[in-house]
């Protein structure tokens, strides 16, 4: 090993250490809030509010998590979010492949016009109010459809997927299939989809994260508690400070109740973010791949 290493100059070594130092500083600045929230969520509530927790947990307890899991709306919000995410992503993937494949074909007559029809919607929109009135007129308020249909397709993702099809599916494949009497429907079902695993994985991740983290559509289209996705429940508790008093009523002391309210918020942040954070390291490379494919023809 030793003899293969090129001896670097003093200047270079100094420069390298500076780079490492800079990256470490940035790394710690990103990491610290994450660690702090995790530590606070499992610390004693009074230690949290009095500022005794600053890095590691103090007097560890799971009180915050107990309060989170006792909260009725958090459970139903979680279930709703899973439902909207799975159903919505399924629609997204079908629509994206249906749009991207024909647009990747050079023999599609009128391709430029159709492409313009797609791209124009990314540059100009009717706006919030006409969109809201449409969903209302279609009778989709307070239904799952309001959660999955208005964003059934993202034009950017169609463009990325189309680029992938253009580069990953050689023209010879189509020719050979056509000679064997394969029509376009069969070609999509039997050849395009089996060969597009990587791009479908990337798209599934993009769309699913979008659905999971989305709150605005739910806020304007839904007003029944039993339909609320997790993000709306989170907003009510974290942002609007709407912690059901009954839930904490078994604690007589006002100060303790206030402290538990703070602890509950930290625990809630962890509970709602942990699923993504646990899955993310395994799928990170797919996200990166998506950015790369997108940058080919950005």
């Amino acid at each position: 090993m030793e003899h293969t290493r090129i001896k670097s100059s003093v200047g270079d070594r100094l420069f390298t250490s500076m780079i490492y130092a800079l990256l470490s500083v940035f790394f710690l600045m990103v990491l610290y809030p994450l660690i702090f929230i995790l530590s606070a969520s499992i610390s004693d509530p009074s230690a949290v509010v009095s500022g005794k927790v600053w890095l590691w947990p103090v007097q560890p307890t799971l009180m915050g998590y107990e309060a989170v899991f006792k909260h009725k709306l958090i459970g139903s919000g979680f279930a709703n979010s899973v439902y909207y995410t799975v159903f919505g992503t399924l629609i997204n993937i079908v629509m994206t492949v249906l749009a991207a494949y024909p647009l990747s074909r050079s023999d599609l007559y009128g391709k430029n016009v159709i492409m313009l029809l797609f791209v124009f919607t990314t540059m100009f929109s009717g706006g919030l109010i006409p969109g809201y009135l449409l969903v209302k007129d279609l009778g989709m308020l307070n239904t799952v459809w309001a959660m999955v249909l208005p964003g059934a397709l993202s034009v950017w993702n169609v463009i990325i997927t189309r680029t992938y099809f253009q580069t990953a599916l050689p023209a010879e494949l189509l020719e050979a299939a056509q000679i064997d009497g394969c029509n376009d429907f069969k070609f999509v079902g039997k050849i395009v989809i089996p060969l597009s695993g990587p791009i479908i994985a990337v798209m599934t991740l993009y769309y699913a994260v979008g659905h999971w983290n989305q709150y605005f559509n739910a806020m304007i289209f839904l007003n029944k508690q039993n339909l609320y996705p997790l993000q709306i429940v989170l907003r009510n508790i974290l942002i609007q400070n709407d912690v059901n008093a009954l839930m904490l009523s078994d604690i007589a002391n006002v100060a303790q109740r206030e402290a538990l309210r703070v602890l509950l918020k930290y625990s809630l942040i962890v509970v709602s973010t942990l699923p993504l954070m646990l899955v993310y390291p395994f799928v990170q490379k797919h996200f990166v791949k998506g950015v790369m494919i997108g940058s080919l023809k950005g």
């Binding site: 749009a99 109010i129 059934a152």
Partner: peptide
């Protein structure tokens, strides 16, 4: 290539209903 148009039908319907109809609605 009618089959390609058939594949495009649903996405185009989506664009018309959820993107272009609101543009028409913007006349309010």
């Amino acid at each position: 290539v009618w089959q390609l148009y058939a594949l495009l039908a649903l996405p185009l319907l989506y664009l018309i209903v959820f993107k272009y109809v609101p543009m028409y609605g913007a006349q309010i």
